[in-house]
């Protein structure tokens, strides 16, 4: 899968409260959530972001709350992926679980400016800044997570585990 779009660049510690403020956490619908994505960090974000655009950010992106709607809100706003120097761990899991592609790539973040058009090959983590021609390689996911993503995500993995358990315990419903 190739992602291609404009980079919207932000700094360190972009927290889940600015990704989707608590006042909107009574929403579940991705499209509704998307209307308020990053509202408290950059009030113009939703107006300027086009579907397929990417967020590029410094360290600790997604710190704070466990609200899964943070990842969902970004997807709802049309964000195709996030490239950051590092991710907060709950947000990292939530992205894997909700299917928002994320890429850990410190050099890439330094080599991309706000407004640059970038391409990300989600399969091998190769990031290209089309403006400068520079290429960067994102950190590979551990094998377990690669398999999890390739096999359709956590819930499909759970279905497999349930089948294994049922097979191991015959006679029980």
């Amino acid at each position: 899968m190739i992602l291609r779009g404009t980079a919207h660049k932000y700094g360190k510690n972009v927290d889940t409260d600015v990704i989707i403020p608590g006042r909107y956490c009574n929403l579940i619908d991705p499209e509704q959530l998307g209307k308020h994505a990053l509202e408290d960090l950059d009030a113009n974000f939703v107006a300027k972001a086009k579907p397929g655009d990417l967020i590029v950010a410094d360290t600790n992106f997604g710190c704070g709350s466990s609200r899964e709607v943070a990842a969902v809100a970004l997807k709802g706003a049309g964000v195709a992926g996030v490239v950051a120097k590092s991710f907060a761990r709950i947000f990292y899991r939530n992205c894997i679980n909700t299917g928002l592609p994320i890429f850990e790539c410190p050099e890439g973040v330094d080599g991309i400016n706000d407004g640059d058009t970038i391409t990300v090959d989600a399969d091998n983590g190769l990031i290209t800044n089309e403006k400068t021609g520079a290429k960067f390689k994102a950190t590979q996911f551990p094998k377990f997570m690669q398999d999890l993503i390739a096999n359709g995500g956590l819930l499909r993995y759970v279905e497999k585990r349930l089948q294994e358990k049922a097979a191991a315990a015959p006679g029980q419903s």
């Binding site: 466990s66 990842a71 899991r93 679980n97 759970v158 585990r161």
Partner: peptide, 30 residues
């Protein structure tokens, strides 16, 4: 816990961590 401050329970020597809702759903099942 489906709340980031689930870390609280470490005060009593438990391993406790916050996760998102899909991880909770998976745990409900398995």
């Amino acid at each position: 816990g489906g709340d980031s401050h689930t870390t609280t329970y470490g005060g009593l020597g438990a391993f406790a961590t916050g996760v998102g809702s899909t991880d909770i759903a998976a745990a409900f099942a398995t």
